[in-house]
């Protein structure tokens, strides 16, 4: 990296080349790794201990099946919450349904632990309870963001559709549903991460079905720090993979977002 590139990297509002970004990321990752290896803190297990813990978790403690349980629960909840939230957000263009979306959105201030009892009496516990709690937790945040996206559509876009003789429901389809599809998927991608933070809480409430969250809480309870670090690393990796997959899905479903050459089909 040249001196000019280095100077640019530390100057506000400058654009740097891809190679400079690669060098910066590599250097910071190396620094982080060095800090980790040389850390004097006993609470931070070393890389070898974490790798060893990961091996043991995978081969001895059923990390693979636990991961499968968590992944399927997380994805199922994400799909259900997305469908519910999109329905609520699209319905918010009808004045009669707007308060409903508002009430659901305010639900994000409610703690999951406080709702467990109500959900348990209704659903009886187990996997349905986990799923319901996760769907609730995701829906309240997704609805908030999606309703905001719909509310932010400029009046000019509705007017544009009306000048093309579209009736109001067609205007909703064209401007609200299709017109915000790319941003709606971006909102889902960003909020999907919340699912993994909620998952550990939810899996801690009903442990019999297993899952990464259950495993993490067990290791935490016994102060197995290397295992805790290993599980956090696994959750991070899975979350990043999910994020990349949702980003790919968005570009596949909404090709007008990502084609820099601006070509497509009618």
């Amino acid at each position: 990296m040249s001196a000019a590139s280095l100077r640019a990297a530390f100057t506000p509002n400058r654009v740097v080349s891809r190679s400079t970004v690669a060098v910066l990321v590599g250097a910071q990752a190396a620094l982080l790794a060095l800090l980790w290896v040389k850390s004097p803190l006993e609470a931070v297990p070393g890389p070898l201990a974490v790798v060893g813990a990961l091996r043991e978790l995978w081969f001895e403690q059923g990390l693979g099946p636990a991961l499968a349980v968590s992944l399927s629960t997380s994805l199922e909840a994400l799909v259900l919450a997305t469908v519910l939230s999109l329905g609520l957000a699209y319905a918010s263009v009808v004045p009669a349904f707007r308060p409903l979306a508002g009430v659901v959105s305010r639900g994000r201030f409610l703690g999951l632990s406080g709702l467990t009892f109500v959900f348990m009496l209704s659903l009886g516990g187990g996997q349905p309870l986990r799923l319901a709690l996760l769907v609730f937790g995701l829906t309240v945040f997704l609805t908030t963001s999606l309703v905001a996206e719909v509310a932010a559509i400029p009046r000019a876009r509705f007017d544009h559709a009306r000048t093309l003789r579209m009736r109001e429901w067609r205007v909703v389809w064209e401007v609200v549903v299709l017109g915000t599809a790319d941003r709606a998927l971006e909102v889902v991608r960003q909020n999907a991460a919340i699912g993994w933070t909620l998952l550990t809480t939810v899996e801690g409430l009903t442990r019999a079905e297993g899952g990464v969250g259950t495993l993490l809480l067990d290791q935490n309870k016994h102060l197995h720090l290397a295992e805790v670090f290993a599980l956090q690393a696994v959750i991070l990796a899975v979350g990043l993979g999910q994020d990349a997959a949702l980003g790919w899905l968005r570009r596949a479903v909404c090709p007008w977002v990502g084609d820099s050459k601006g070509r497509g089909s009618s």
Partner: peptide, 29 residues
């Protein structure tokens, strides 16, 4: 609305449709 053509200042189009798609939907309307 719809009786007269309107070209607003920011030239709105349906971003999720191609140029041809934008025109075809207008023709269908």
């Amino acid at each position: 609305a719809g009786d007269v053509g309107v070209v607003a200042q920011d030239f709105p189009l349906f971003e999720h449709r191609t140029v041809l798609g934008n025109l075809v939907v207008a023709g269908r309307q």
